[in-house]
Amino acid sequence: MYIKIEGLSRTYVLNNGHKSVALEKVDLEIQQGEFICLLGPSGCGKSTLLNMIAGFEKPSTGSVNIKGELVDKPSVDRITIFQNYGLLPWRTVVKNVELGLEAKIPDKRKRREIAEEYIRLVGLSDYKKHHPAQLSGGMQQRVALARALAVDPEILLMDEPLGALDAMTRMNMQEEIERLWLEKQKTIIFVTHDIEEAVFLADRIVMMTPGPGRIKSIIDVPLARKRDRTSPDFLKIRDQVFAGFELKGVDHTEYYL
C-alpha cells in the first residue's frame, strides 16, 4: 500500500493539565494517484491527521508509512498547501515559486526556467513580477500550487486551501485543482468541511466526526470526470454524505393520497 496509516492517535495536553484527544485510532490506506477528501466539522481532527501525514506533528500512538517508510519529519516529497497560502510576502511570484528549487537546483537560469514553466501552468505568467499582496486570494493560491508542483512532489496535502475564497472563485479553483491533478498525476489529500467540494473532487471521501476525532465512514465517488454539480448522480452522492453526517431531517409527515 502506498500510504498506510495505522492506529494513529494524537493527544494534546492542555494548559490546565487536562488531555484533549484530537484524533483517536485512525486506520486508513491510500493508493498512489488517489484524490482523497478528509471531510468533517471543525474539531474532527482532519487537519491534525493531515499534519501528521505531512510530518509537521508527531503521533501520540500509531504510525504513518509512505511506501514502507515511516514519516517522522516534513519532506519535499509531500508539500502542504495552506488556507492562508503561506507565500513569502517579500518575494515576487517567481521568487516564491523558486523557493523550493533553491536547495535542489544550483543553476539560477535553470531554476528560473522551471519556475516560469509552473507559473504558466497555473496561468499567471503576466503576474510573475508581482508581489503576493498585489494578487487576489485565488491567484495567491495558484502561486502556492505552482510553488508546490515545481518541486515535483509525489503527494500534495491541502489544508482547506479554498476556505478563504468566495463561492465563485472557489468553484473555479476546484476545477483548476482537478485539472492539475489529472495532468500531473499526484496523490492528493484534501481537507475540507464543504460537502459539495468533497463530492466534486474526491475519489473517496473520508468522513470524520469530532469528540474525539475519528473516521466515521468512507464513501466511494464513482463519478466520471469532469463532474456535473447538478447531475442526479452527483446529488445522490451528496445526499448520501448528508445522511452520513445525520444532516438530513427525518421526514415524519404522513402522506395522503
Binding site: A54, F56, K73, P74, S75, V76, R78, I79, T80, F82, N84, G86, L88, W90, L99, G100, E102, A103, V151
Partner: peptide, 26 residues
C-alpha cells in the same frame, strides 16, 4: 506558517535564518 513552509521545502540553516526568518521578522 513561514517556518512550516521552510521545513516543507527543506530550507536549512543558515539559509533559513537569512531567507525566511530575517525577512519575516523585518
Amino acid at each position: 506558517i513561514y517556518l512550516k513552509v521552510a521545513d516543507n521545502f527543506d530550507v536549512r540553516q543558515p539559509k533559513r535564518l537569512f531567507k525566511i526568518i530575517l525577512p519575516a521578522a523585518f
